[in-house]
Amino acid sequence: MIEIRWHGRGGQGVVTVSDILARSAILEGMYAQHFPEFGPERSGAPVKAFTRISDEPIEIHSGIYNPDIIVIIDQGMSRSFQSYLEGLKENGLLFLNLGDDFSKLDKSILPRGVKVYIVNARKISIEESGRPIFNIPMLGCLVKVLSMPSIKTIEEVLSKRFSEELVEANIKILRRAYNEVRLVE
């Protein structure tokens, strides 16, 4: 079982992206679970969402405290950065929404063996759609590294919820991030 915790702020689509990942994984025949942690539902407030993916039925109905993967949708190295990392497993994966300048990233604060992947979500989304979208690029990075679910399945899930135009723009963003995700050495 893989446990993923998403961090971001109200308005960044934190809950939506976890939901889309779980639905896509289920559509591909896996067991998956998505659930949000609803704190204050205000634009800008910190928001968490949780995804579990497994090849066996999932019985746990509680939060994720020791994730295998943390995805930080929130841009850059925000003040909350260190608190977002809480409980990350050794050898876990960390996905960051960072520009080309990741020199400020202090890898010594990470648990042993953690691999860090970065993508410039702002640049990609503005270039592709004219507005900043942070959640879908982060999903693009994640599915590249996990090798699942397929972009086609995600497109199918998005189509059920959004207009054709919006789906097209989001898939373009997803593909860019999929191709541009970088492992920080």
């Binding site: 949000p36 999932i58 109905h61």
Partner: peptide, 12 residues
């Protein structure tokens, strides 16, 4: 059904 824990959980 448990509020949020099931109402807002996506499951297969």
């Amino acid at each position: 059904l448990d509020g949020f824990i099931l109402t807002h959980s996506v499951e297969p």
